[in-house]
C-alpha cells in the first residue's frame, strides 16, 4: 500500500472529521452500539456458545465414535420414524389446514370466532398436557380409541399415535400461514375468473390455490420443523418401543440418562443437521416459488 496524494478537492474545514465507518448513513437515532452489543452478547451466551458445545461434543471418541452412533440401527430407525411421521403429519396438515383456513375466511357460521381462537390452542397448551390428553383420548379405553378398537385400529402406543400428536402440534402453523393470504385475496381477481366462465372449483384450484403455494409451503416448513423436534406431546402416546415407536428426541434423553454425553450430542447433531438440510431445501423451493410468482 502506498500513500498516494489525495485527489484535489475542496478544503475540509477544521473540526469536521469524516465518519469513520464505511457505512454511509449517520446514525441519527440513539442506542446503536448498546443495542447491538446487547443483542450479540445475549445471542452468543444463550444460543451460540451452547450450540458450539453441541457441535464440539460428538468427537470425544474421534470420528469413529461419531460414525458408530450414526450407523447404530436403533438411531437410524428413530430418525426414519421421526422424520417420516413428521413429514406425514405436515402433509396431512397441509390439506386439513387449508380446509380450516378456507372455512374460517370464507364462511360465516355460529361459533366461527371460537373455532378461530381454538386453532391457536396447540401453541398455548403445554405439550405435556396435550400428550396425556391425546393419549387418554386415543387409548383403547378412551373416547375415540374405544370406537376404533372393534375395527382393529390401534392409535395410542403405535406410530399412528405419534402422527396424531404431531398433527395436533402442527395444525396452527399451516392455518395461520394461509389464513391472512386467503383473507387478503383480491375479490376482483376471483370475479374476473368467474366472468371468464370458471366454475367455483376451477376458480379455487386454478386461481386461488396457486397464489397460496408460498404460504402453504412456509406453513408446511414450520409445522415440519416443529414436529421433528417435538417431545412432550409425543412421548405419552408413542409407546416408545425401540425400533418401532421411539422418536429421536427420546433417544437423546435416554443416552443422557445413561450419562453418554457424546452419544446424546452425536444423535442431536445428526438430527439438527438433517432438519437444517430439509429446511434449506424447502427454503430453496420457497425462493423459486416466489420468483415464479414475481414473474407472472
Amino acid at each position: 500500500m502506498t500513500a498516494s496524494s489525495p485527489p484535489a478537492r475542496a478544503p475540509v474545514p477544521t473540526g469536521f472529521k469524516p465518519p469513520r465507518t464505511n457505512l454511509h448513513t449517520t446514525r441519527v437515532l440513539p442506542g446503536f452500539k448498546s443495542s447491538l452489543s446487547l443483542t450479540i452478547t445475549y445471542l452468543s451466551l444463550i444460543v451460540l456458545i451452547p450450540l458450539a458445545a453441541l457441535v464440539a461434543r460428538p468427537w470425544e471418541h474421534g470420528l469413529q465414535g461419531f460414525l458408530f452412533v450414526l450407523t447404530d440401527s436403533r438411531v437410524i430407525a428413530s430418525l426414519k420414524l421421526t422424520f417420516g411421521v413428521a413429514a406425514a403429519a405436515a402433509i396431512l396438515n397441509l390439506f386439513v389446514g387449508l380446509v380450516v383456513a378456507w372455512v374460517l375466511t370464507r364462511y360465516s357460521f355460529p361459533g366461527r370466532r371460537l373455532l378461530d381462537a381454538l386453532v391457536d390452542l396447540p401453541f398455548a397448551l403445554p405439550t405435556a398436557v396435550a400428550g396425556i390428553a391425546l393419549c387418554t383420548l386415543y387409548a383403547p379405553s378412551g373416547w375415540i380409541g374405544a370406537l376404533l378398537a372393534p375395527l382393529g385400529i390401534k392409535i395410542a402406543y403405535t406410530p399412528l399415535g405419534i402422527l396424531v400428536a404431531l398433527v395436533f402440534v402442527g395444525l396452527p402453523f399451516v392455518v395461520r400461514s394461509v389464513q391472512p393470504v386467503l383473507a387478503e385475496f383480491d375479490a376482483e381477481v376471483e370475479e374476473a375468473a368467474q366472468t371468464l366462465g370458471a366454475s367455483p372449483l376451477q376458480t379455487a384450484v386454478r386461481v386461488i390455490f396457486p397464489s397460496l403455494a408460498p404460504a402453504l409451503l412456509s406453513g408446511f416448513s414450520l409445522a415440519l420443523a416443529r414436529a421433528v423436534g417435538e417431545y412432550g406431546s409425543v412421548i405419552f402416546i408413542a409407546g416408545n418401543m425401540p425400533y418401532v415407536s421411539e422418536i429421536t428426541p427420546l433417544l437423546i434423553v435416554i443416552k443422557l440418562q445413561e450419562f453418554d454425553y457424546a452419544g446424546a450430542a452425536s444423535v442431536a447433531l445428526i438430527m439438527l443437521g438433517l432438519s437444517f438440510l430439509v429446511l434449506i431445501g424447502l427454503n430453496a423451493v420457497q425462493l423459486w416459488l416466489s420468483r415464479q410468482g414475481g414473474r407472472s
Binding site: L54, G229, L256, A265, A268
Partner: peptide, 13 residues
C-alpha cells in the same frame, strides 16, 4: 427450529 430436548441438552454439555 431446534428441538426442545436439544435446547436442554446443550446446557448439560
Amino acid at each position: 427450529t431446534i428441538s426442545p430436548v436439544i435446547c436442554g441438552l446443550v446446557w448439560i454439555l
